[in-house]
Nucleic acid binder design. Structure first.
Lengths: 250, 250
DNA sequence: GTCAACCCCCCCTTTTGGGGGGATTGTTGA
DNA sequence: TCAACAATCCCCCCAAAAGGGGGGGTTGAC
């Protein structure tokens, strides 16, 4: 395991990472792997098959027809596995999907289509870095086979470090450190209240200040984020970690 | 390790998780741990010291005066460790902080203040779940001691699963599974565009339909979510998993 | 003495929220 | 097979809220 981490850290080439992942996937008793970011692919080039420097992470040894179907049908938009991977930070077996999300008919149909393409059960390690596309490293067995229960912990580690290796291959080529936008405490309070659907007047009553002041804070925050609408401002504040989504639902 | 995971999964009580973490922290050769979400606390209650059901994750056996200082000075807003933990998805030693973020003077000062309070080097496992506050599980040694290099992989696993255990204690305590509101595909498109800051008129041009129709979809979606403002609608749609946060930032 | 955070007021346009009224499809289940 | 229903569209009106300018001021930290 330690040697996998050390090797993966030194990689500078997607193909090397792919080969490394392929061998460790077999070693752990899985049949296929897929390391990917969950981006609705339609607006982009159809590049899931390999990694493009400075762009998206996407490596996999899934059967080719499944990869093509995945791209053509834009399955990334509703794959239950990927939805579930946005609900946790540790790996999960696909057989436990229903504990993470509410499985509806299209989800079952999707899993069934996978089985017909040879994709059976799987273990998915989520990889979510704020400000980047959500991603996951998926290890799967052929339909009919069982997951190698004893290797799941290993898969958890491999998945995390593999994804990080992918990120680092990309970001080494790119160097884009985005500074977290600074907001004043008062501004964060206003944004939180905006997120809860309050009007400026209501916020002014809650904070005990003038409506015009509330407008000032919000306008300044929008300017800092370089956006024009308060919806965008709230989204950005969530992404930045200034607000937890759960605070806004109360 | 496997037994830690199994036990942590069964926990329903913050105190039990705290005890479990405390013992495994020592076992791995660390001196302290801190499991927390990185929420700017000033606008909210000051509750870092323990876990509040349905609210934030926060457990730690740091020296008490350090916890207090942490809260009082709202260190969470600029702690370099927490900033760095939002730049990766795998654990990192604090001595490698400079590979993740640009360390400025206030950051060095913060690390120095930590050392004076007995907090030396550390290993931090990030835990970022989209839509929730960013979090981390931190394992630290007293100033002057070395990190237990051989246990870092273990710490990576323990950190991930411990955080997940914390999340599940909270979410299990919350009113359980909320039915995901059904939205039509066209509505989701509109909501996504609203989230990107488009006006109704712009959305109508993008989708090639009348502005009034866009209004209809949005009004209907707000009604389904039982909210009045479009900000709330977008937030709810994100929480539901109808939209990934990353889609809205493009 | 500069700067950021905090606070307040004005004006005007555009966008939104919240009603009302229609129509056409395709699916679904009694 | 036919009624019910959900999804897709379109139009009207009006009041409230947000967006985008401008102009002030105090305080405390560096």
């Amino acid at each position: 395991m330690q040697s996998f981490i050390d090797i993966s850290r030194g990689l500078r080439n997607p193909a090397d990472l792919e080969a490394l992942l392929q061998s460790i996937t077999k070693e752990m008793g899985f049949d296929h792997f897929a390391l990917m970011q969950h981006v609705d692919l339609t607006p982009f080039e159809k590049e899931l098959g390999h990694m493009v420097t400075g762009q998206l992470i996407g490596l996999s040894d899934y059967p080719e027809n499944w990869i093509n179907q995945y791209i053509d049908d834009n399955i990334v938009a509703y794959d239950p596995v990927l939805l579930a991977s946005q609900r946790t930070n540790v790996g999960f077996a696909w057989s436990q999907l229903d504990q993470l999300i509410d499985l509806k008919r299209p989800h079952f149909e999707q899993l069934e289509r996978g089985r017909q393409a040879g994709i059976g059960d799987g273990f998915t390690v989520p990889s979510n870095v704020p400000g980047e596309a959500n991603g996951s490293c998926n290890f799967v067995v052929k339909a009919g086979r069982e997951l190698p229960a004893k290797e799941l912990m290993m898969a958890q580690l491999v998945g995390s470090y593999a994804f990080e290796a992918g990120r680092s291959i990309i970001t080494h080529a790119k160097t884009n450190i985005v500074e977290k936008t600074q907001l004043s405490p008062r501004q964060i309070e206003c944004i939180a209240l905006v997120g809860r659907g309050k009007t400026d007047w209501e916020i002014s009553r809650i904070l005990g200040i003038a409506e015009s002041t509330v407008k000032d804070y919000i306008n300044d925050a929008k300017a800092r984020y370089n956006v024009v609408k308060r919806v965008q401002m709230v989204i950005r504040a969530i992404y930045d970690g200034h607000l937890p989504l759960s605070e806004l639902l109360r």
